[in-house]
């Protein structure tokens, strides 16, 4: 399982956050490949050429927020597993995510760390 090469689409408007996610996942899964998207719209564009196994998704983004992005990504690419990586850790947000009817592998708090990545990998 761990030797499988998987593709991860990292969706976040902050490039630093995208790098942090990539680095932390790479630490544990050195062979995995990464594609970056800087917004929900960009992510949908990338999905035309890439079929990721995992999507990490920020919630607080301009234009299209993470909730809407999650719904659109699930429509376009139902096989991708989605992990939420967010600074918004309010209970109400967790309830809202649960209400979407999408199976999220994990909801991880920013800034991402080793424990967060383990949570994501475990969820997969």
């Amino acid at each position: 399982m761990a030797s499988d090469v998987k593709t991860v689409l990292i969706v976040d408007d902050s490039s630093v956050s995208r790098m942090m996610v990539q680095n932390h996942i790479s630490d544990q899964m050195p062979d995995w490949q990464f594609v970056h998207a800087s917004s929900g719209v960009d992510a949908l564009e990338k999905l035309k050429t890439v079929t990721p196994d995992l999507v990490t998704l920020d919630l607080n983004m301009p234009e299209m927020d993470g909730i809407e992005a999650a719904q659109r990504i699930t429509e376009v690419c139902p096989t991708a597993r989605i992990a939420i990586v967010t600074a918004n850790i309010q209970d109400s947000m967790r309830r809202k995510l649960q209400g979407l009817g999408i199976f999220f592998v994990a909801v991880v708090e920013k800034p991402i760390n080793e424990a967060g990545v383990r949570k994501i990998l475990f969820g997969m």
């Binding site: 956050s17 607080n60 967010t86 600074a87 918004n88 850790i89 309010q90 920013k110 800034p111």
Partner: peptide, 11 residues
């Protein structure tokens, strides 16, 4: 982004 994370906790 740092501020965003900080305000996430504050919120």
């Amino acid at each position: 982004e740092v501020f965003n994370i900080g305000m996430g906790r504050a919120a």
